[in-house]
Design a protein around this nucleic acid. Sequence first.
DNA 1: TCTGATTGTTAGCATTGTCTAACTTTATGC
DNA 2: GCATAAAGTTAGACAATGCTAACAATCAGA
Lengths: 158, 158
Amino acid sequence: MCDTKLMTQRDLANPTPSVTDGRPADLRAEAFQGVRDARSRELAEDYVELIAELIHDHGEARPVEIAARLGVRPPTVTKALDRLAREGLITRAKYRSVFLTDEGRALARECRRRHEIVLRFLLSLGLDAETAERDAEGIEHHVSERTLALFAAYASKS
Amino acid sequence: MCDTKLMTQRDLANPTPSVTDGRPADLRAEAFQGVRDARSRELAEDYVELIAELIHDHGEARPVEIAARLGVRPPTVTKALDRLAREGLITRAKYRSVFLTDEGRALARECRRRHEIVLRFLLSLGLDAETAERDAEGIEHHVSERTLALFAAYASKS
DNA sequence: TCTGATTGTTAGCATTGTCTAACTTTATGC
DNA sequence: GCATAAAGTTAGACAATGCTAACAATCAGA
C-alpha cells in the first residue's frame, strides 16, 4: 500500500535548496507524507472504532446503524465494509451484521485509547464537551505517540 | 445536539445504555461530517500555505518546488493547481509560476496562523521540534477556533 | 543561437469515497 | 403465511488524489 520508491528520484535530483527558516524541505515533505498516510488510515480507524462501540453497546453492528452514526448513506458503508473485510479487519456475511477480527479488535482498542486521551486532554484544557468531541475526532488520527504521552501526562496532572 | 452528556467514556462510567438513536448519534455524525469537510479543505490549505511561504522566501512559487516540498510528483501538482485556480485561490499561466489571489492570500494567512499556534503549543508542552512539526501539520486542519484559543493561552503562559 | 537539461503539462490509469436509483433480502405485523 | 416495511446490496456516476510515461516549453551555457 505504501509506496517506498516515491522519494528516490527526487532525492537524487534535489540538492535541497532553501533551508530558509529552519524547516528543511525534507522535513516538510516527510510531514506531508505522514499526513497522507494518516488520511488513508483514518476511515478504516473510524469504522473499526465505531463497530467496536456498537457491538459493545448493542451486541451487534449493523450497516444501517453505522451509516447513521457516520452520517453517510448505506451504499457508502457497504463499500467501506468490503474494503475492511479485504484488509482483514472485519468479517461479514451478506445482509448480516459485522464482526471484528482479532486484528480489527486490536486496532479498535488502539483507536479508542487515542481518542480518549485526546478527549480527556481537551477537556482538561477547559474545552466544552461538544467542541472537545468534535475536535478529538479530527485530531486523534494525527497525534504521535510522543504527543499522546504529553497529553496524557497533562490531563492526569490537572 | 444540545445533549452534552459524555459518550465516550462508556466503560469507565457505565456500560451505556440505550444509545437508541438519540442525540449521541447526531453529535458523532456531525463530528464525522466536520472531519470530512476538513479533509476536503486540507489539500487546498496546504498548497496555499506553502505557496505563500515560497513567494515570501523566494519571490515566486514554482510547481517543481511545491512538488518537492509536499513530497508528490509534478503531475499531481499540476492537477491540484488547476483545482485551486478553478476555486479562485490562485492565478497562473501555463509553464509559469503561481500567484495567490486575495482570497488565496487570506486563506494562507489564516492557515499560517493556525499552524503556528499549534506548533508553538506543542513545543511549549515539551515536544521535540521535529515531532512537533509533523504533528502540527496533521492537527492544524482539525482544530476549532475555541481550541486554538486555549492552545494560544497555554503557550503564552509557559 | 542551438542544444541539452530542467521544468511543466497532458494522457491515461488506479484507488477511495461519496452519492442516487433500483434491486434483493430479511424482518415484521396482521 | 403473506404482504409490506426496513435493511442491505448492486450498478453506475462523479470528483479527488495519487502515479507513470510521454510530450512540450523554457532556460542556460557553450
